[in-house]
Amino acid sequence: MATVLITGTSSGIGLSTALELARAGHSVIATMRNPAASPELAEIAAREGLPLQVRTLDVDDDESVRACVAAVDGPIDVLVNNAGVECHGSIEEMPMDRIIGTMNTNYFGAVRCIKAVLPRMREARSGCIINISSVAGRISNPPLGAYAASKFALEAMSEALAGEVKPFNIRVAIVEPGIQDTKMARTIEHEVTSIYPQVVRFSGLFRAALANPVPPVVTAQVVRQIIESGTWQFRHTSGPDAAAFLAWRANMTDEQWIAWSAQDDESWYEQLERDFGMNARPQAPHAGVAAVEPAVGG
């Protein structure tokens, strides 16, 4: 059994992954920004007698990452970089601090954790790093430009890292979930006011997808399979829609993809329904609501 450090375990994919691995007998160090504010995981672990410890780790903070990793006795066999923030909105309208904050958590946060655990893995000549990306790590469209940028960066870094550390017998893998039933996805399904129509369109797409929700345990099971199988496969999709979305994008030229995002509302809704059978049209006249704050994982 492996010792696994997971970031962003307060809810969603992180919480499900921590439970999936601990129930399978792995020793789990489940980290989150504020454990006192999110007691659910610790309560479940205590009730079930799981080999799971909850510890404080803020991936945005160098010292928090260093201190948490330094306090772990013995090897860290697996690092699962899951902590992330959701960010949607047009590039023009989004405040710079949100764009920077998204990159800091989703990309630099993973880099901080990797740099903290790698010396130990390299000396042991063994280890596994799993980065939770998204189909948005390979597909970019409005209103997810800032979020996709952070996931594109994560995937680019991971690909380079995999080549660096393979000679030390350290595996690197990316998991790319589609739309799954998490707080982040539920945030996107709420409409916000914008001068750009794509913001409302995508709230409808997420609402339609979440009508038949895919639970985050689906991604947790993919993570477990990567750890236990010893596979060197680099990219792994998660959920029934992930491969379909990626194939859809691959069948379009860049210009066709941009034109799809830029077309008028009715044409966009018709194409989505024709290609995916999803009715993303607004359920009621859009009166406009205040923008929602980003959801935070961990």
Rank of each mutant, 00 (worst) to 15 (best):
A2D: 09
I13L: 08
L15Y: 05
T17A: 09
L19C: 09
L19H: 06
R33C: 06
A37E: 12
I44E: 12
L50G: 10
Q53Y: 01
R55F: 02
L57P: 11
D62F: 02
V72W: 04
P75A: 15
N81F: 02
V85R: 10
S90A: 15
I91S: 10
M94Q: 14
N104E: 14
G109C: 09
V111E: 04
C128N: 09
C128K: 04
I130H: 02
I139L: 13
S140M: 14
N141I: 13
P143F: 04
P143M: 09
A148R: 05
A148M: 04
S150F: 02
L154C: 05
A160Y: 04
G163A: 09
V165C: 10
F168D: 14
N169H: 14
R186C: 06
R186Q: 15
E189V: 04
T193I: 14
I195R: 12
Q198V: 11
G204K: 03
A211W: 00
P213T: 08
V214S: 07
P216R: 01
V217F: 00
Q221T: 12
E228F: 05
W232P: 00
Q233Y: 00
R235I: 07
G239H: 05
D241M: 13
A242K: 02
F245K: 11
M252V: 03
E255N: 07
S261Y: 01
D264F: 00
D264A: 13
D265C: 04
L272F: 13
L272H: 06
F276K: 03
G277C: 09
N279D: 15
P285G: 07
H286T: 15
A287C: 10
V289G: 13
A291Y: 06
G297S: 14
